[in-house]
Amino acid sequence: MKRTTEPEAAVARLWQEHLGARFPAELRGAELAGADMVLLDADIAGCVSVWLNNGGALDTERLSILRDCIAALEQILSLLNEPAGLRYYQRLHQLALSVSTAEAPKPTE
């Protein structure tokens, strides 16, 4: 039986919160700092979902995508004026950071 690590549990809780949130209507079709906001959401969501389904591990390509998304978010967050949109993307930022900095699980012997 697979044991869930604390980072996985924390990400899973935040992920469930995110899944219950509505995408901010004002950001549909919006592009900020050169990033399509819907695509940014989808890219991070895909990486988080894979990470959770792979026991806290991401392949190199997805990790690179996630790091690019984090860099984009770090430019975008200060541009968001609407509270709902800011909360939505702050949560995505937190998810992306948590996943990208979590230590990959060690193989069991």
Rank of each mutant, 00 (worst) to 15 (best):
A33Q: 11
A9C: 05
A35W: 04
N54P: 13
D59P: 10
D59G: 12
W51L: 10
D59A: 13
S64Q: 13
T60P: 06
A57P: 05
V50R: 05
R67I: 05
S78K: 13
E26N: 15
N81S: 15
A10W: 01
Q94C: 08
W15F: 09
N81Y: 05
H18D: 02
G20N: 06
L97W: 03
A25M: 11
V11M: 04
N53K: 02
Q75G: 05
L40E: 00
G46I: 08
Y89L: 04
A30C: 13
R62Q: 12
L14H: 01
Q94N: 02
L63C: 10
E82R: 09
A84C: 04
N53V: 01
C47P: 08
E26Y: 07
R62C: 05
A72F: 01
L39Y: 13
A10G: 11
P7V: 08
A45C: 06
A84G: 02
N81Q: 15
C69F: 03
L80D: 00
C69A: 15
V38M: 06
D43N: 13
L66R: 01
S78V: 12
D36N: 13
L79C: 12
H93P: 01
L97H: 12
D41I: 00
A21N: 04
W15N: 01
E17Q: 13
C47D: 09
E8P: 14
L39G: 11
S49F: 03
R67V: 06
L40N: 03
L52C: 07
